[in-house]
């Protein structure tokens, strides 16, 4: 029933049975196992280091309870800490502030911005909003077509952008059209770009200063490895993002990037993409991802009940 990490931790604590406290030494040994698990899950090296330091502190001197084995107890501390770090504010898209609500989608190439734009528009429409999809990617071949197709499928209007217009002009124009037609929620789909591409990062800043944005979402692929921190840090530095969307989560990635991104940006993970279909967007559940990062499923529910 117990899988990898639990087994490994039970091994570490075998010698401990009977004694009353978790000692510094067996904590250290068990933290080695936790460290391995986190690195295997693609949590960033430095983030793991900080995390282990924090958790070790909490674990030392903890009384061993009767209901949980020492291994289970360490897992519980680790898991709880992960949930806390991943969680924080669980606010969704803010709809009650200034109108129209304006959302800009950003991120690396191929992370899922355009698809998520469609998914988000669908959710907002179902909430009674009047979304307007705005293709502001003039670079990727057929990017505008792609969003247009999604708009048609959802029966949601799409701004008639053309590739000969500057993205910032497209956004401005779309704002005007939205005002005229009574669309209250604009979603700007921007081109994928590398965080090191200063010219293209500048383009996003230009949109940011031209349009009063309610949300800037950073869309990241859940399969991302160690580099997630570098990328997220730069997008957040340049744009002060308001939230994160993690895509392609229905696969078998452990999703350590979630922790890396949350750690360096401090910004809430608002949604999780779980498929290509337009209804495959969910709100984020920190506890689920914590279990997944640790590589364990239902074991934790058992521990939590204990």
């Amino acid at each position: 029933m117990f899988d990898n990490l639990t087994d490994r931790l039970e091994g570490v604590f075998k010698k401990l049975r009977g004694t009353g406290k978790l000692t510094e030494e067996n904590i250290k040994e068990s933290m080695q196992e936790v460290r391995m698990a986190l690195l295997e899950a693609d949590v960033n090296f430095q983030v793991v280091k900080d995390f282990i330091a924090k958790v070790s502190e909490k674990a030392v001197g903890l009384e061993v309870t009767k209901t949980l084995s020492p291994g289970q107890q360490v897992i519980k501390i680790v898991h709880d800490e992960l949930v806390e770090l991943l969680g924080g504010t669980t606010e969704q898209i803010r709809l009650d502030g200034r109108q129209p609500v304006t959302i800009m989608m950003t991120g690396l190439q191929g992370s899922g911005k355009t698809t998520t734009s469609g998914k988000l528009a669908k959710i907002l429409k179902e909430k009674g909003r009047k979304p307007y999809l705005v293709p502001a990617d003039i670079y990727r071949p057929a990017a505008i077509d792609q969003l247009q197709v999604l708009g048609e499928r959802l029966d949601i209007p799409v701004h008639p952008s053309t590739t000969d217009m500057k993205p910032v002009e497209i956004c401005r124009q779309a704002m005007t059209v939205a005002g005229q037609k009574g669309y209250d929620t604009l979603i700007f789909d921007t081109a994928g770009r590398l965080h090191v591409d200063e010219a293209l990062m500048g383009e996003l800043k230009e949109i940011q200063s031209a349009i009063q944005l309610s949300e800037i979402l950073f869309v990241a692929d859940s399969m991302t490895g160690q580099d997630a921190v570098t990328v997220a840090e730069k997008f957040n530095q340049d744009l002060e993002i308001s939230g994160v969307v993690l895509t392609k989560m229905e696969g078998d990635a452990r999703g350590g990037a979630a922790l890396s991104i949350k750690s360096v940006t401090g910004k809430p993970i608002k949604f999780v993409g779980i498929g290509e279909a337009l209804d495959a967007l969910e709100v984020f559940h920190p506890d689920r991802i914590a279990s997944r990062i640790l590589g364990m499923g239902d074991v934790l529910t058992l521990i939590e009940k204990a």
Binding site: D42, L108, D221, M223, T224, G225, G251, R254, A257
Partner: peptide, 11 residues
């Protein structure tokens, strides 16, 4: 394969 991908690329 995408170079930004981590361990999942093996799978």
């Amino acid at each position: 394969l995408d170079a930004t991908t981590g361990q999942n690329a093996v799978s």
